[in-house]
Each structure stands twice: as C-alpha cells, then as structure tokens.
Amino acid sequence: MSNLIQLNQGIANIATDAWTLVQLPASQVEERKQAGKVVLFKLTGENTVTNEQIATTAIPATGKIIVPLSVFITRKNELASRIQQGEVGVWLATHEVLEHLVKDQPDLNTLPIIAIHVERFADGRIFSLGTLLRTRYGYKNELRAFGDVLRDQLYFLKRSGFTSFQIRADRSAQDAIASLNDFSVPYQGAVDEPRPVFQRYNRTA
C-alpha cells in the first residue's frame, strides 16, 4: 500500500509513486557528536557528503529517479539524456543550500519533481525551503516532502507550497489526509494563498 499523498488541484489522494528515490551510500566519516550523542540537526550549509559517496551512489539504469543534490550536480553528464526526457528529479536535505541547485540549474522547471528530506519532525527549515522554491525561484512542478513526515506537519507543508507527502512508513497516509485541512481560514498570506485574510474578506462588515 502506498503511503504517498498527492495534491491535484487542491484535492488530496493516495497515489502510487512513479519515482524511485536514489540514496547516497552510508558515509564512512564519523558523525558529528555532542556529549557523546550524534548531533540531531545538521547546520545549514554544512558539507556532509563525501566525493566517495557521490561516486559510489548506485543509480538505476532505467526509470524515473530522484537523485541527491550532490549527485545531480557532480554526475550531470552521465544523467544528461535522462534529464532531457524528464526522468530525473532532485532531492535536498534541509541543511543543504537551495542556491547551489539554483546556480546549477537556473530553470528549475526542467525538473519534474523536487523533494526535500526532513530528518526530524521538528526541523522547520523545510517550510522556508518550500516557500523559497515557489516564490523566489518560480518552481511550478511537484514538490515533495519525505522523511519524518507526519500528519501534523501537513497543513504547514501544504501552505509552504508542497504538493506531495510521503508519510513515514509506520503511519497511515489515509488518516493523515484529514490534517491537510485542519484550518479553513488562514490569517496570513503564504504560498498556497498569498493574500492575507484582510485582503480576502471585507472584515469591516
């Protein structure tokens, strides 16, 4: 059973996933630690991917794939024809810098999908990344959240421009759909509705 929620013209449905997610191989470099514990959140701009990881990432020979940003940038020549055919999307971790993608690929709309991986529920950088992709960089295609994605983020993700949501495997996507509409009248303008409430209604009446 698929755990992917997709928004089409504002209507949410459980959809089968046409994309294969390409992961980086595990790093040999030791994780950064603090007081003996692995640091939960990486700093924005922190370089966490090694050249070796990029080189040894296994890319399936056929089909639609979403590749890590670092692989996309470094192994572009190898992927060129598939990019042209619209079979390659890109994913970023929340600590990666959006501008690196934009610099590499000035017309983001050649990408059919961009996905953002949120490692931990509490990492709200994903909302700014979505907002920037939609409002600053004019990205119009599918924008997906995956990772620690649970129903109580969905309303905020939707308002930040996300259109598909890969719900964490141990939770029901069917149950989660309801939370996309937790609130019916947002106060402030955001990606999905840029007009704040005072621009949409005559509240003086």
């Binding site: 990492d123 983020q153 905020f156 947002p186 106060y187 402030q188």
Partner: peptide, 14 residues
C-alpha cells in the same frame, strides 16, 4: 498576533 498564528513557514523554528 493574527499574522503569527499558525504562520506556516515559522511553525517549527530553531
């Protein structure tokens, strides 16, 4: 107050 209430981009700050 109204603007900050459920502001989607700033729902989970550092």
């Amino acid at each position: 107050r109204q603007w900050s209430t459920f502001h989607p981009e700033f729902a989970l700050l550092p």
